[in-house]
Every structure is written in structure tokens, then in C-alpha cells.
Design a protein around this nucleic acid. Structure first.
Lengths: 190, 190
DNA sequence: CGCGGGTTTGATGATGCTCAAGCCCGGTGG
DNA sequence: CCACCGGGCTTGAGCATCATCAAACCCGCG
């Protein structure tokens, strides 16, 4: 059942069969239809989510009442509202399926149990978090470096698949500008 | 020697004397004068740094040739170039002292050894990274939510100490605008 | 066929940058 | 103790980038 996840873990550490079984016992899995929610703003985030198939987005509602996307997650990405997860406070974000998706869910308590029983899983998660941290630092660097236009060009070069997979207005939201401006850019760049 | 760090760790987990000694053995410490470097762009980042006293900044040089600050670190903050640390590639950032500072340095190899020998230290570091991740998510949210003016107002309200401690032009750089515009804002907001 | 979500177009205007100059003030050398 | 740097902060004019708003358009789906 966890094949996608086990394959991903296998890239970082080795697990024996007993350990794989332990993991399988402590995860749950969910199928999501497009537009279904994993987490809604105001709920407390209790799980860490691994995307096995499909695409999720994380967003919040800004003061103008429009959705603001802060993150996407596709195959082999983990996603959660970390602040809500750590402090068990109401989430300021929602997580929703952009496409029909398959997700593995790890409850925070199950995660703690697994850490105690399967050290190499802890090692794996540690490595995942380090990569997330590194990615966040690079993302900040890009934000400081580029104009919105450069930002767009850069993004579609580095993630060409994405430009296909998600609607333009979500891309615009994620990149921090309006659909109108994105449209203008696209026109200009042909 | 590690008193500030041990005190900070003590807020999250408990260490016995033996464990504290192990930590002491595996850290080194450095005193830094204002403007001294811990890491220069192009070097490989080999340490994780804990600020015991003082203030550091992390920055890179953008295409216009000006310094762009992405992060500060004051007492009880950890700082590193995570990408460089993970992949052992040349760093794209520099880390420099803003004030005379005292820093504890943990070499990546020593870190691995400590993880094996002192599980609660690993737990502590895990918690530190989770907080960093949560902070990064919130920072992104702020970036999407606020105009530069709101951003400035927000920052000085949430970190009033900072506005005193670092020169204006560094604040402006960190907040992502020009010293001229910051000056304009300050005038307007009195 | 018609509806509605998503994209495009264009006019207008605010936000925040650039550049050039002046000012303030603390440190340094005479 | 004074004079003079020079770094940092301020001021102002002009300008680029990007948002807003309103309207039209396109196209897949019921």
C-alpha cells in the first residue's frame, strides 16, 4: 500500500521488512477528488501528508478575500501546516487537491512512535526536513533576486511540467501576482 | 563553556551530565568581531552555528552587485547555509557578524556522532528544524499578505529590539526595499 | 445551446525604485 | 581640541513595474 513512499524512503535509507510493516501499520491513506480538502483553515493540523499521486495546494485567504497559494505538493512531496502541527493551534492555511490525488497520512502521535521504533525512518524524515529548509532558503533568495517577470520565466524553466498541470490563475497566485499580469507576460514572451 | 546552548536545549529536552560533556567535547566556539565572517560566498559550509551572544547576518550579492540580506540570527538562533551543508557545494551566501559575537560551531560530522550518542540532542535539533520550517511558512505568508509599508510596520512591532540593533540600511535590505524608501516610510509614519 | 469559469485586453493609477544631491554625526589625525 | 572626512540617513524628481477595474472573449460541460 505504501509503495510510493517506501520507494522514496529507499533513496535515502534502508528499511528491512519488519520496519516496512511497522510503517504500513502507522500510516493511513486517502483518495482525494479534485477540490477535496485535506485541511481547512481553522482546523488543527494533526497529520503530516505524503503525496503518492496527484497535486495539492496550500493557501490562505488574504484580507481582500482572495485565495493566496503559498505551496504546491506533487508526487513524493510532504506537506503540512507546520505551525499548527507543532503547537496544535488552528491552522491559518487550507490544503486542497488540485487534481484527483492519493495521499498517505501520518498522525503526529504515530510519527513519534515510528521515530522511537524505526531510527532510519527518523533519519529519513530529518533529511526531508533539511531539504525543505534548504529549499526555503533558496526560495527566499529567488524572491529577493528577481522581478516578477524574471520570476515567471525562471519558474517555467525550472518546472515546465507545472505550467501544464495547474491552471494559470493558480500559478499567478503562487508567483505572487495577478492573472491579468501573468496573461500580459505570456503575451509578451512569445 | 556551552552554557547558553545548554540552557536553550534544556527548554526542550533533559540532558544528564554525561550528555552535556559529550556535547561540550564536540562543539568548538569562536569569538567574532563586528564585520568578521563565519562563512564566505564560495566556501563550503561545514558547520551549524549557534549564536550565544551578538548578531549575525546572512546575505548574498545580487546581479546589481549589492548585498542582499536574507536572514539575521541573534541569541539562541541557529544559522547555516543548508544547501551547501547538505550537498557540500560552494555556498551562495555569506555569514558575517553585525556586532561582536560569540558563536558555538558544530561540525557536520560531529553532529552525526552526537545524534548517535545523544538521542535527546537529536530530538532537540529536530524540534529546532521544525520551528524553522514553521517560521519559513509564516514568513512566506507575510510576504504574500503585506505591502512593503505594512511589512515594515509589522516588523518593527514584532521585533522592536531589532530596529535599534541593526542599521537602517540592513533592515531595508532584509525587508526587501531600498534605504531611500525606508527613510520615506519612517518620515511618513511619525 | 447557453452558462460559467478562466483567460485576455486595455486604460488608469499606486507603489516603490533610481539617481543625484545634501545633510548629519561620530571617528580620526593633526 | 578642532577640522575634516566619510558612512549612513534624508529629500525630491522622474520613472518602471505591476495592481485594479471593467469588459470582452473563449471554450468545455451540462
Amino acid at each position: 500500500m505504501l509503495s510510493e513512499l517506501l520507494a522514496h524512503i529507499g533513496k535515502f535509507v534502508n528499511l528491512n521488512t519488519r520496519e516496512e510493516n511497522l510503517l504500513t501499520e502507522h500510516f493511513t491513506n486517502t483518495g482525494l477528488n479534485k477540490k477535496e480538502y485535506l485541511l481547512k483553515e481553522g482546523q488543527v493540523c494533526k497529520h503530516n501528508y505524503f503525496v503518492a499521486q496527484g497535486c495539492l495546494r496550500m493557501f490562505f485567504i488574504n484580507e481582500k478575500g482572495t485565495e493566496q497559494i503559498t505551496q504546491f505538493a506533487i508526487e513524493n512531496w510532504w506537506i503540512n501546516d507546520t505551525m499548527s502541527l507543532i503547537k496544535q493551534t488552528p491552522s491559518e492555511f487550507s490544503i486542497q487537491a488540485v487534481e484527483d490525488s492519493k495521499v498517505f497520512c501520518l498522525h503526529k502521535d504515530a510519527q513519534q512512535i515510528l521515530y522511537d521504533k524505526v531510527p532510519s525512518f527518523q533519519q529519513y524524515m530529518h533529511s526531508v526536513e533539511q531539504h525543505a529548509h534548504a529549499a526555503a532558503q533558496m526560495r527566499m533568495k529567488y524572491l529577493y533576486s528577481y522581478s516578477k517577470e524574471e520570476h515567471y520565466i525562471n519558474f517555467i524553466q525550472r518546472f515546465p511540467e507545472f505550467a501544464q498541470r495547474v491552471p494559470q490563475y493558480m500559478l499567478a497566485s503562487f508567483l505572487g501576482f495577478t492573472p491579468e499580469y501573468l496573461s500580459e507576460l505570456r503575451k509578451k514572451l512569445t
